[in-house]
Nucleic acid binder design. Structure first.
Length: 270
DNA sequence: CCCTCGCCCTGCTGGC
DNA sequence: TGCCAGCAGGGCGAGG
């Protein structure tokens, strides 16, 4: 899905149309994504004013003046369509603001979610309660990873996908960050050295920051809220490049880990 | 606890 | 052209 940079881009795009606006109309077309929509979704959002937008891990946050926050997850194929010309298949939720902007949450695979959570209790809300630190915040440090990886035998790649260790990384950016840090994806997490973790943290942060600056990655059904496409996909060095030469000349390799594809360079990652 | 696996759902691509 | 296998960015629960 949209990983952290894509959610961040989406939230920033939505903010231009929602922040400070009152929601005038809420239309639910199909109220069952990963889980059913809250039964009071329409009632709670209709007439509410959006006070602020935010993001936690891969979740987008729409805070309202009703002390309720709408939390959305884009799953694998979710996207917000801004000012859609016409309705499309899989537009599950449509919001219209007082000033006439229309926003449609479209999710073909329906792995996404929409929830309402009391704003003051967000941190203790089930899906948020166990999340690890934000990778772009101050709490992701080599020491944090050292501690979280300690005595773990699972491959480092799998643990980086674990949202309780770091919140917001997905398959693409984990592959790219491990490449930048020169760490083999199948390395036992507990055996990754502190110097390697000290390279990994800035590798994670740079790959995410650069992607956000570029407006996210483009893949299949992902588009920014405005409808433009992100450009970061062109910057992938290993993801999706099986068989192509790495910058070092060796071929990019692919194998399956935990049921998903891992891309890496045998020469650059040790 | 930790680790792995399989499933949720739909659509697109590539090979025959 | 049609069909079908394989693949896709996530998250969760079951079972060992």
């Amino acid at each position: 899905m949209p990983e952290l940079p894509e959610v961040e881009t989406t939230v920033r795009g939505l903010a231009r149309f929602l922040e400070g606006e009152r929601i005038a109309r809420v239309q639910v077309n199909r109220p069952d994504l990963r889980r059913p929509f809250p039964p009071d979704l329409v009632q709670t959002l209709t007439g509410a004013r959006v006070t602020a937008m935010g993001r936690r891990a891969k979740y987008g946050l729409i805070h309202t003046d009703r002390e309720q926050t709408m939390v959305f997850h884009l799953g694998m194929s979710g996207r917000w369509r801004i000012e859609p010309e016409k309705p499309e298949k899989h537009d599950h939720l449509v919001l219209e603001t007082e000033s006439g902007h229309v926003l449609a949450l479209n999710d073909a695979r329906r792995f996404g979610s929409v929830d309402l959570v009391a704003t003051e209790a967000l941190d203790s809300w089930g899906p948020f309660a166990g999340l690890g630190p934000e990778p772009l915040g101050p709490d992701l440090t080599p020491q944090h990873l050292k501690r979280a990886f300690s005595s773990r035998i699972a491959p480092v790649k799998q643990l980086l996908l674990d949202q309780t260790i770091v919140a917001g990384l997905g398959n693409i950016y984990v592959c790219e960050a491990l490449f930048r840090a020169g760490i083999r994806p199948d390395k036992e997490a507990g055996r990754v050295s502190l110097p390697a973790l000290t390279r990994l943290v800035p590798a994670i942060q740079s790959v995410l920051s650069e992607s956000i600056a570029a407006g996210g990655s483009t893949i299949r059904d992902y588009a920014q809220p405005s409808g433009e496409l992100g450009y970061f996909a062109a910057s992938w060095q290993v993801y999706g490049r099986e068989g192509e030469p790495c910058t070092c000349g060796a071929p990019v390799l692919r194998f399956v880990q935990g049921g998903r594809s891992t891309f890496w360079c045998r020469r650059c990652q040790r």
